[in-house]
C-alpha cells in the first residue's frame, strides 16, 4: 500500500475539484478500493473521502422515477420500501450480492465503479493489461473460470462483477454525474464499456467526474420479472452467470422484454436485437430457448469458462420462465424453481 493524501470535502464542488487529477480516487464504502490498495493494485495519490457529501437519499421523482443518491448503501437501497414494492428486481439483485456486512458498507456509486475480480488483476506480479496497460493478459490461456464469454477482446477477457448493475441495466437506469465541465447523464448501457484495446478503462466516466445519483424509470412489469444468479456456492460468491429478466405479457404474447446478463462480459450485457426478436412471440420454453441462442450467438469460451455458455443458455431460459410465471426468484430461497 502506498502513501496517499486524504481529504474529506463537504461539498460536491470541493470533491470534484479534489478529484481533478488522474490518480485521485473517491472513497465511498471502501470495500473495493481499500482492498485494491492493500494489494498494491490501486495506488491513488489522493483519497477523496466523499462520505460527508449530501448524496445519501432515495427519492421518487415527480415522474415516478427512482433517484438513488450515490452514497446510499446497498443495504438501504435493497430494503427501501418503495424499492422493494416498485423495483423489486433491483432489490433482489442487490441481495444476491456480497454479504450483509459488505452491503452495509458498499454504496450505489461504488458498486457501479467496482473493478473486475479477475484473479490476475489482483496480483501485481502477473501481466494484466487492465492493471498495467500493454503488459499482456494472463487470463487468456490461464485460470479463467469466471471470465467473459461475450464482448471480450484480445487484450482483456474480464467481466464486470456487479449484481446491482445487471438489474439497473435491465431497468434502463441512467447515471447522473458531475464534473469540471458540469453535469451530464449517462445511460446505463453506455456507462460501462467493452475492453477493446483499452481495458484499463472500465467505464466512460471522465477524470474529475463524480457520480451523484442514479435514476431509474418506473417499470411496468408487474410480477413478471426475476433476478437469477448462479454461482459456485449458494451465497457470498460472484456470479458465474446472472440474469435479470422482465416481461410485459398480454394474453400470452410478449409485449416487452428486458434481458440483462451478469458474469458474462466487461459490462452488464444487453442485446436489444435479441430482445426485439422476442416481442410478439408467445410465452414458452421454445421461444425462450430461441432468444437464449440468439443472445449467445457470438459467445466464445476461454477454456475453463466454456461451460458458462451452456449455463448462460439454461439460466436465461429459466429466468424467463420464472418471469413469465410471475414467480421471481427469492434470494432467501436457495432452491431455484
Amino acid at each position: 500500500m502506498n502513501r496517499f493524501e486524504y481529504i474529506r470535502p463537504a461539498t460536491v464542488a470541493d470533491a470534484i475539484a479534489a478529484l481533478n487529477e488522474p490518480a485521485a480516487r473517491a472513497l465511498a464504502g471502501g470495500t473495493n478500493l481499500v482492498d485494491l490498495m492493500k494489494y498494491d493494485v490501486a495506488q491513488p495519490s489522493r483519497l477523496v473521502d466523499i462520505n460527508r457529501l449530501p448524496l445519501k437519499s432515495i427519492e421518487i421523482t415527480p415522474s415516478g422515477a427512482l433517484r438513488i443518491g450515490a452514497l446510499v448503501t446497498n443495504t438501504d437501497l435493497a430494503w427501501h420500501r418503495d424499492v422493494r414494492e416498485k423495483w423489486p428486481i433491483l432489490s433482489s439483485a442487490i441481495l444476491a450480492g456480497a454479504s450483509p456486512q459488505l452491503r452495509n458498507a458498499a454504496t450505489a456509486g461504488g458498486n457501479l465503479m467496482q473493478r473486475t475480480r479477475c484473479y490476475y488483476f489482483y496480483d501485481p506480479s502477473t501481466a494484466c493489461n487492465k492493471r498495467q496497460p500493454g503488459s499482456g493478459c494472463s487470463a487468456i490461456g490461464g485460470v479463467n473460470r469466471i471470465h467473459a464469454i461475450l464482448g471480450a477482446s484480445d487484450s482483456c477477457i474480464a467481466v464486470h462483477p456487479s449484481d446491482m448493475c445487471v438489474a439497473m441495466a435491465a431497468l434502463d437506469a441512467s447515471v447522473e454525474v458531475e464534473g469540471p465541465d458540469g453535469k451530464r447523464s449517462i445511460p446505463m448501457s453506455g456507462f460501462h464499456r467493452l475492453p477493446g484495446g483499452e481495458p484499463e478503462r472500465d467505464n466512460t466516466l471522465k477524470v474529475g467526474e463524480l457520480i451523484t445519483s442514479i435514476i431509474i424509470p418506473k417499470p411496468d412489469f408487474g410480477a413478471h420479472h426475476t433476478y437469477l444468479k448462479i454461482r459456485d456456492r449458494l451465497s457470498y460468491a460472484f456470479a458465474l452467470i446472472s440474469v435479470a429478466a422482465a416481461l410485459r405479457v398480454e394474453e400470452g404474447i410478449i409485449q416487452d422484454v428486458r434481458i440483462a446478463l451478469g458474469g458474462v462480459a466487461h459490462k452488464p450485457w444487453r442485446d436489444f436485437d435479441a430482445e426485439r426478436s422476442l416481442k410478439g412471440e408467445r410465452v414458452g420454453t421454445q421461444s425462450f430457448k430461441q432468444v437464449a441462442d440468439f443472445i449467445l450467438r457470438d459467445a466464445k469460451g476461454q477454456g475453463d469458462n466454456d461451460f458458462k455458455i451452456e449455463l448462460a443458455r439454461r439460466a436465461i431460459v429459466r429466468a424467463l420462465e420464472q418471469a413469465a410465471a410471475g414467480t421471481p426468484q427469492d434470494q432467501a430461497d436457495k432452491s431455484i424453481h
Binding site: 484473479y119 496480483d123 485460470v143 459456485d232 449458494l234 451465497s235 460468491a237
Partner: peptide, 19 residues
C-alpha cells in the same frame, strides 16, 4: 506461472452459511 490465483477468501470457496 506456478501460482495459486485464488489465494484469498473471496475466491477460495468453502461453504457459506447458505450451503
Amino acid at each position: 506461472l506456478g501460482k495459486i490465483m485464488n489465494a484469498n477468501l473471496g475466491e477460495y470457496h468453502f461453504p457459506a452459511h447458505a450451503d
